[in-house]
Each structure stands twice: as structure tokens, then as C-alpha cells.
Amino acid sequence: MTDLSPPPPEVLPESAAAPPDHTAGVEGRPEPHKAGMVCFLVSEAAFFSTLIMAYVIFLRHGSAGPTPDEALSLPLVLGNTACLLASSATVHLAERSLRKGNVGAFRLLWAATILLGVLFLVGTAVEWRGLIRDHGLTIGVNLFGTTYYTLVGFHAFHVTLGVLALAAVLGVSARGLLPGTAPLPVTLVGWYWHFVDVVWVVVFLVVYVLGR
């Protein structure tokens, strides 16, 4: 927490390292953006908990139409999961390279994270195409379709947001606007990305392992 304590109020920082802060910082208090990200992730966790709960409640409540056992297949999803787990590793390694001052490695690993995230999204798209074309599973067919597309769709939406955020950070970094060894955007987007991965692990376990 010592990396970026805001400057005292009277100082007008023109140096790019100073965050645009208008408040007097006090030693030992949590860094505001980090605390804010933690709060945001808590609210996201509450949101996903609700969707997961709805999925579990309606599991095996289906009347007509495909069931999870018939429709879901593991191989493609395992690949997807591997992509996302690997991306968590790359984002971690990217942060570590940056902390060591290796900006080149940081950008490479960060770009790899983006690529893995896009691969996950493509994998999801392929999976959905199969579900719709081969199994006739849409959101309106039965309760499984309703809850499945809502839960997995919202997760994919969050992955999309994450990919955009990662790309934005990469763009900013490429323009040389990310000074220091642990700039806040990198840390915060990294946390968000780990969170999305953890949510996927839970979704994977609930939907593809326990729920089949």
C-alpha cells in the first residue's frame, strides 16, 4: 500500500506519477482505488451469487427440451477453462515483470492475457453455436436454457469487459503513460481479471461438473 500515497494538498504535482487526487492522504489508510475495486468486486460477487443460486434452484426442473446431461460436453469447455486459468497466470507474471522493471515482458504477457481471453470468448461462441444448432437449446426453450444462458452469458459479458479493460491498459502503456513499477490500472485490472477467473471456476464446477 505504500506504492502510491497521494501527495500533500499544497503540492501541485505536474509529474505524471501522481494520481489525480484532491484529498489529503494519511499514512496507513487503504489506497482509495484499491479499496474501491475491492468493494466493486464484493458487489459483483453478490450479483453472481444470485445468478448461480437461480441456476442451482432450477437445476433438473426442466420440463421439455434438452437437459444439461444431453447438451453440455466437456472437451471444448475444458479448453476454455484452460485458457482462462492460463490467462490468470499470465496476468500475474505480467505484473511481476513490470515490478522488476521489465516493460517489454510486461507488454508481451499482458497481450497474451488478452489473447487467451479472446480465445475463451471464441470458445464460448462456438459452444453456444453448437448448443443452438445441434441441441436446439435457446434461452426460451426451457428453464435450463434460461438459467444457463443467463449465468454463462453474464460471465462472458464480464470477460468481454475485462478484455476491453486489458486492451485499454495495454494501449495506455504503449503510449508510455503508465509510469512506475506497479501502476494502479495494472493492479486493478489484474484484480478484476483474477476475479472473473474465480467466478468461472465456480460456474464451471456448478454447471459442468456438479450439475451434469
Binding site: S43, A46, F47, T50, A54, F58, G140, N142, Y149, T150
Partner: peptide, 23 residues
């Protein structure tokens, strides 16, 4: 802690109404 579940519930409601889901 409680506002996101409401958002989720309202989203489910809108999925029901707009996309034909059955929550």
C-alpha cells in the same frame, strides 16, 4: 451486498419479458 441481487433479479425479469426466458 443487497443491491446487486436486486439488479440480478430485475435483469432476470427483463430477460423473461424481452428474451423469452422463464425465471
Amino acid at each position: 451486498v443487497v443491491m446487486p441481487p436486486l439488479t440480478a433479479a430485475l435483469t432476470m425479469l427483463e430477460f423473461d419479458r424481452q428474451l423469452g426466458a422463464h425465471f
